[in-house]
């Protein structure tokens, strides 16, 4: 459970508005934080294992979280159950997934899901940014979990080249070199990164939505995450490429299609004209 503790420690530190860099002060906080984490875990476990416990037993929610709870009870409760404990066969428990997960799923329109299928699709979001924040706050206060830092631009002054290196090792196998996404087994797929915002990419790395592996802050530090986001946003997202129209960046398959549909077709028409009678 060390890893969970570590992650929680970083998160708590950030919650208090401290810089994420390892500092002596932060380490001193260790004991207190571990205690808090243990309590939180125990709380989470309690809520999971004791479905009968009602909301009144939880610590009081902040105003934003109350707003979020209202939204939750209207739109999410069918599948994720009261107090986000999950409904067998419909939706998982959201205890401990953190606001990062909520932010990714709801702001990209994947949640609420239209129907049960292999994988939730990206859709126009049904909630405003403010509502997403409130929902996230509610889930965060219910069970804790990873959170995305403040701000909409998370890649200021980041190192694109370092991000590219990390992208190729950790991301390109599923999302492809060009960020266009790719197929996974049995109908699942890695989505295109082009419509994703900074916050969504960050949240996805932190929370590992659906079949994506989790890239916690110990594996890829927040600075490195910023580098990756910089690489995606600055080089992959622009549809304008150095070499002309990029054919969707699908690689040799569309290039092969193009040589027949454009090259061969054009030249066959030319030869029809050249050898024609007129």
């Amino acid at each position: 459970m060390t890893s969970d503790n570590d992650r929680r420690r970083g998160l708590l530190a950030r919650l208090r508005g401290r810089p994420v860099a390892r500092s002596r002060g932060r380490r001193r906080l260790g004991a207190a934080v571990r205690l808090a984490a243990a309590l939180m875990l125990a709380g989470g476990a309690y809520t999971v294992f004791a479905p009968g416990v009602q909301a009144q037993d939880n610590p009081p929610l902040t105003a934003a979280a109350n707003e979020g709870k209202a939204l939750f009870d209207v739109s999410c409760v069918t599948c994720h159950g009261r107090n986000a404990q999950g409904v067998e066969g419909r939706g998982p428990s959201l205890i401990g997934v953190g606001s990062a997960s909520v932010e990714f799923q709801v702001s990209s329109g994947r949640m609420p899901m239209a129907r049960q299928e292999a994988q939730a699709l990206r859709k126009p979001p049904q909630f405003t940014d403010e509502q997403v924040r409130q929902l996230g706050q509610y889930i965060q206060e219910l069970g804790g979990g990873p959170q995305v830092p403040q701000g909409n631009n998370l890649h200021e002054n980041a190192d694109m080249a370092a991000g590219g290196e990390l992208f190729r090792i950790n991301c390109s196998q599923c999302h492809a070199f060009g960020g266009g996404g790719g197929a996974l087994s049995s109908g699942k797929y890695a989505p295109s990164l082009r419509p994703a915002s900074d916050r969504q990419i960050y949240a996805a790395m932190l929370s590992g939505p659906q079949n994506m592996p989790v890239f916690g802050d110990n594996q890829i530090t927040p600075e490195q995450k910023a580098d990756i986001i910089a690489y995606i946003q600055e080089t992959l997202k622009h549809n304008q490429d150095q070499g002309g129209f990029n054919l969707g960046r699908y690689g040799p398959s569309t290039e092969g299609l193009a040589i027949f549909l454009v090259g061969i077709v054009a030249l066959v028409f030319a030869s029809l004209w050249i050898a024609g009678k007129s």
Binding site: T2, S3, D4, N5, D6, R7, G208, P213, V214, F215, G216, N218, Q219
Partner: peptide, 10 residues
């Protein structure tokens, strides 16, 4: 370290 890789991480 073991703590570097989150659950469900690779």
């Amino acid at each position: 370290r073991p703590s570097d890789v989150s659950v469900g991480g690779q």
